[in-house]
């Protein structure tokens, strides 16, 4: 890009800004997010990571901003999958899986970051309407004839297990304003983060009222050696198995050569 080109772009941008600012002064706020990368690679030394998402607000009202009236909730939602929840009960003194419920389109992970404690941002009911927090994630059983009491029991259990494994998390203060219109969200990727296409979503609130949201996709995938092993294990599983067994034979033989004591 030449210098002239850059200047031209800049001029256009300024012009757009000025025109918008002048002709429609009461435009509502706009939220944009940008991911520094659209792919996170998991390599052999991966043990969880922090994902930083930058974002900007347009048409910020300086008065509301100086009062701290803007709040942002950023969500990173994992790929959706079918999930079975099983329940153990006591049979003959032993704890055995006896009941289960299958849910469809369950986010494999759900990580939420927000500017302030949830009750300070907006009403509990608007979290529910927007399905923002892990506890509000909508869970639908595969079998629609399930009773609501059972759905309630198993969906609560599902969320609790996801929270216990660190896949459903909520981080107050995970979103910080860098300036009046720039913000940064830091989300934690767990060591067992599911691979696949995740979606980052950002929700803007002004004085407790939801204004706008935006989203961007993020692909999390295994890279390098891990990816090759995984692909090999699934695509040529027989050869993979044979090679695994041969590796064991070679290791056993080498170990004997190196360590033998007799």
């Amino acid at each position: 890009m030449t210098a002239a080109h850059v200047l031209a772009c800049l001029a256009l941008f300024m012009l757009a800004f000025v025109v918008r600012g002048h002709t429609q002064p009461m435009l509502s706020e706009d939220i944009e997010i940008g991911l520094s990368t659209d792919t996170v690679s998991i390599t052999s030394d991966f043990s969880g990571a922090n994902l930083t998402i930058f974002g900007a607000l347009d048409n910020v009202d300086p008065l509301i901003s100086s009062q701290g009236g803007y709040d942002i909730v950023v969500i990173l939602e994992g790929p959706r999958q079918t999930l079975t929840v099983r329940k153990k009960t006591r049979v003959l003194g032993m704890w055995i899986n006896t009941q289960s419920m299958i849910f469809r389109d369950v986010p494999a992970s759900y990580s939420v970051a927000m500017t302030r404690p949830p009750q300070d941002i907006t009403e509990i009911s608007s979290y529910e309407t927007l399905a923002l927090r892990p506890r509000d994630v909508r869970l639908r059983p595969l079998d629609p004839s399930e009773t609501s009491a059972r759905i309630q029991e198993f969906s609560t259990a599902l969320r609790a297990r996801k929270e216990a494994s660190g896949l459903y998390v909520e981080r107050v203060g995970g979103v910080e304003f860098l300036s009046r219109s720039l913000f940064r969200a830091t989300l934690r990727l767990a060591p067992n983060v599911p691979v696949g296409t995740h979606r980052a979503r950002a929700f803007l609130f002004r004085k407790g009222v939801f204004v706008q949201d935006t989203s961007a996709p993020l692909s999390i995938r295994k890279a390098g050696f891990e990816q090759r092993v995984f692909a090999f294990a699934y695509q040529q599983s027989f050869i993979y198995g044979v090679l695994s067994a041969l590796l064991a034979v070679v290791t056993g033989w080498a170990g004997r050569m190196i360590f033998r004591k007799d």
Binding site: A233, F238, G241, V242, S244, L247, A248, T251, G255
Partner: peptide, 25 residues
């Protein structure tokens, strides 16, 4: 090992290798 790898995709060769190295020693 071969049959589990083929039918169930449950052989983790990296995990197995770590165990083997410790094991044969």
């Amino acid at each position: 090992t071969v049959v589990h790898a083929t039918a169930n995709h449950t052989v983790d060769v990296v995990l197995a290798f770590l165990l083997m190295v410790g094991g044969v020693a």
